[in-house]
Design a protein around this nucleic acid. Structure first.
Length: 811
RNA sequence: GCCGGGGUGGCGGAAUUGGCAGACGCGCUGGACUUAAAAUCCAGUGGUGGUGACACCGUGCAGGUUCGAUCCCUGUCCUCGGCACCA
């Protein structure tokens, strides 16, 4: 018998699989399809153990599905546009395109060592023209449908990187890469009108098979809140005549009689018209102060409310009370109408503000102690004219009705979700396919002219404007409409645009005249199981859902949700329990693990570590346990080779085998990899303790283990069953055997019944299934372990659970 | 502050969702093999008491419901994520 040599075995089988094109996914098949996908990896350079943790168990799952008779597609590709490529390229003096290509070549090699069933002919690289051509096409479709537009908006500007950053690239007010304090700048930017789909995105999330946490995060991100927009007439301090209206948004119209002041955002466009002469200086000083404050400081100062009186007043349209208008930076221009009504008695922020500036606090809902803090719950209405005595929940409806009836305002729904800013002033991204013509204005690039190629020779070191603008050959062009002089848009698209539709491309990666074939897409999509990290995924997942919904409305898709089932993998920490990082020197390199133990061991250990969505510290000793296990499997199966025979198994043996098969099936279906491995180990330990292990048992062992350790399984299959030509211990065998087998052998004829006295375990009885309560009672009472606890006691009751338990209640 | 997930041996974690707590693995202890070590194999391994069969205690803490609670309810402490002046 040869020693277990994983490296040799793995090399051998990976070659055979490739030669036989075993894992080439047919476009269509009679088999039911199964589309399983991991989140588009970024072409960062090296695969780390976190990638493996994402990909390996997912491949175990994909292999499992394949063995169960599905036409499985498990594609792979690279998300390869983006700022890190530029950063690394600048640092190392390599062009981003070359850097990216190098990285991808390396990552492909690493991925191949894993033994996954990727169909490499379907690989997608998002920075290649054949792909971004269709990213640009997507942009044009959105533009056509008025879902893409250009507007002046406040954007996050990093003064050090000299570029706009996405919201997700700003962490606690500083740039994620250089930690500079991010500034707000008003800039002309391209945006996608995702807010148009806010309700649909919110409503449809409920039915998805996604982790509840992720669904909640999406719901919170969309942040729908129902309220009322109310117009307050403005009275200038001097004259008292009505010259303007101030519109506020509130979710608490029931508190309107408690308004004692108004607050307007420093960025509010109408602000200057409210400021009277005497207060002009104070207000402009205040605005200057606010401008100086960075986002970071605004957050850090948190609850400390500041503001200045404008000098004007509002009239409460319901109570006719005159209240002062303040400007304060705790009111955000970006939400609601940029102005709020101050109800200190029932809103803590307003309460804080009122206390600081000695404004009145008028209680209109009973139930709290408004002298000490705001009362934000519901209760009985007071000080509210005709609404007094009502419950505030009811008053909310009545007051809203009244406001609408009297034309003082209207019901309104607001969202936390903003339109998606997609312009980037960077080089390494898909160019936005728009042309500016002196005569015709803004013109889209005709679809036949796509792709708008990203030029290679560009000075991409950050200079504060789009690098593409420095390349006159790129910039200067002809207007597609009039043929006159025109210039190209020089911003590129956010990489999240690339990853918002890539899952639609895998079924038809080589299609030249369209991004995807609707019929083929209808067969493969939606993705059955989508797997990726829980961090940073709200945006990608939301964007992808938005794209799918928009493309459906355009008539290209027949489904409205891209990812039916979503699972997250946890984060693997260093052996020290810290997040892995170069500076801490606690990085686990998968290549070294493969070299030491083989891919099969790494795959299986990643599955066995713990619950998949949990992750946790890497245990260098733990992987040795798996290596031992696989070695033992190798030894046992090889040893038993000669006595392989069609011997009959006992009932007990069959049951254990069937139980294991069922457990592994159930666990893998639910992504419980750790307990699936444990079940195989348990059964294996039983086999190891037997004098003779039969061929049927070995066959099943190999089948069960093959999704985890496919190379090992192939090798043993070949050795034990002497089938030199056959590869992949197909579950077609298994398929027929599996469900019928379970049915036949799992049915138990005898069961252990637990005997308790006052709920405490005292004995166990092995009885035939269906034994009567009376017989079990007799047996139990006859047991000395039980009877000694029944002696001298009064029997009050007997609880009996059929085939499971009997409990004597005594006193 | 708001929302959500967790607290089980020395460690990672199991437990058919109310019915044998600690599966499986790591580690540790003892033994076999070896001149020796490594590797491998065998046995043991929640705590306390007892030579022992056994007994009692034990799933963050305090109560409650129940014949019976790791699981359900109330309170409380700790911890990890996400969002955060959203009116």
């Amino acid at each position: 018998m040869k020693n277990y040599n994983p490296q040799e075995i793995e090399k051998k089988w990976q070659k055979i699989w490739e030669e036989h094109k075993l894992y080439k996914t047919p476009d269509k098949s009679d088999k039911p399809k199964y589309y399983t996908l991991v989140m588009f990896p970024y072409s960062s350079g090296d695969l780390h153990i976190g990638h493996w943790y994402n990909f390996a168990p997912t491949d175990v799952f994909a292999r499992f599905k394949r063995m169960n008779g599905f036409n499985v597609m498990e594609p792979i590709g690279f998300d390869s546009f983006g700022l890190p490529a530029e950063g690394a390229a600048i640092k190392r003096g390599i062009h981003p395109a070359d850097w990216t290509k190098e990285n991808i070549a390396n990552m492909e090699k690493q991925l191949q060592s894993m033994g996954a069933i990727y169909d490499w002919s379907r690989e997608i690289i998002s920075s290649e023209p054949y792909y971004y051509k269709w990213t640009q096409w997507m942009f044009l479709q959105l533009y056509k449908a008025d879902l893409a537009y250009k507007a002046k908006v406040p954007a996050n500007w990093c003064p050090s990187c000299q570029t706009v950053l996405a919201n997700e690239q700003v962490v606690d007010g500083v740039c994620w890469r250089c930690s500079s304090v991010v500034e707000r700048r008003e800039l002309e930017q391209w945006l996608f009108r995702i807010t148009k789909y806010a309700d649909e995105l919110l409503d449809d999330v409920e039915a998805l098979d996604w982790p509840e946490k992720t669904k909640t995060m999406q719901k919170n991100w969309i942040g729908r809140s129902e309220g009322v927009e109310i117009n307050f007439p403005v009275i200038s301090n001097k004259k008292g005549d009505i010259k303007e209206q101030l519109t506020v948004f509130t979710t608490r119209p029931d508190t309107i009689f408690g308004v004692t002041f108004m607050v307007i955002s420093p960025e509010h466009p109408k602000l200057s018209s409210f400021v009277i002469q005497e207060n002009k200086e104070a207000v402009s000083n205040y605005i200057e102060e606010v401008k100086k404050k960075s986002e970071l400081e605004r957050v850090a100062l948190e609850k400390d409310k500041t503001g200045v009186f404008t000098g004007s007043y509002c009239e409460n349209p319901l109570s006719r009370v005159k209240v002062p208008i303040y400007v304060a930076d705790y009111v955000l221009m970006s939400y609601g109408s940029g102005a709020v009504m101050g109800v200190p008695a029932h809103d803590q922020r307003d309460w804080d503000f009122a206390k600081k500036y000695h404004l009145d606090i008028v209680e209109v809902i009973r139930g709290g102690d408004v002298a000490n803090e705001a009362y934000t719950e519901s209760g009985e209405m007071a000080n509210s004219d005709q609404f007094n005595g009502l419950d505030s929940k009811e008053a909310k409806k009545r007051i809203s009705d009244y406001i609408e009836k009297e034309h003082l305002g209207k019901r309104k729904i607001n969202y936390h979700l903003r339109d998606w800013l997609v312009s980037r002033q960077r080089y390494w991204g898909a160019p936005i396919p728009i042309i500016y013509c002196e005569k015709c204005g803004l013109v889209s690039v005709p679809e036949t002219d796509l792709p708008v190629l990203l030029p290679y020779d560009v000075d991409f070191t950050p200079k504060g404007k789009s690098p593409l603008a420095t390349n006159s050959e790129f910039v200067n062009t002809k207007c597609p409409t009039c043929g006159g002089k025109a210039t190209r848009e020089t911003d590129t698209m956010d990489t999240f645009v690339c990853s918002s539709w890539y899952y639609l491309r895998y079924p038809n990666p080589d299609l030249e005249d369209k991004p995807f074939d609707t019929d083929l897409i209808s067969y493969w999509l939606p993705v059955d199981t989508y797997v990726g990290g829980a961090e940073h995924t709200v945006l990608h997942l939301l964007y992808s859902r938005f794209f799918t919904k928009a493309l459906k409305d355009f008539g290209y898709l027949k489904f409205g949700e891209p990812f039916k089932t979503l699972r997250h993998q946890g984060i693997i920490l260093g052996p020290d329990g810290q997040k892995m990082s170069k500076s801490k020197g606690n990085i686990i390199n998968p290549d070294e693990l493969v070299k030491a133990y083989g891919a099969d061991t790494v795959r299986t250990y990643l599955c066995f570590m713990g619950p998949y969505d949990q992750g946790g510290p890497w245990n260098p000793k733990g992987i040795e346990g798996i290596y031992r296990f696989l070695t033992r499997v190798w030894i046992l199966t090889n040893k038993q080779k000669d006595i392989f025979s069609a011997q009959e198994l006992t009932v007990e043996e069959r049951r254990f085998m069937a139980k294991t098969v069922k457990k592994v099936t159930d666990d893998l279906t639910c992504f419980r990899f750790n307990t699936a491995v444990a079940a195989i180990m348990e059964w294996f330990n039983f086999l190891r303790g037997k004098k003779t292990v039969y061929g049927e048992e070995i066959k099943n062992l190999i089948i069960l283990i093959s999704p985890f350790a496919p190379h090992l399984a192939e090798e043993i299959w070949q050795i034990v069953f002497n089938s030199a030509k056959e590869f992949e211990p197909k579950l077609s065998v298994h398929n027929q055997l599996w469900p019928a087998y379970i049915k036949q052998h799992l049915e138990e004829k005898e069961v252990w019944v637990v005997v308790q006295v006052n709920g405490k375990l005292r004995d166990r009885l092995l009885v035939a299934v269906g034994t009567s309560k009376e017989d079990i009672q007799k047996l139990a009472e006859g047991s000395p372990k039980v009877s000694k606890f029944l002696k001298d006691k009064v029997l009050c009751d007997i609880v009996y659970v059929s085939n499971r338990l009997i409990n004597f209640v005594v006193s």
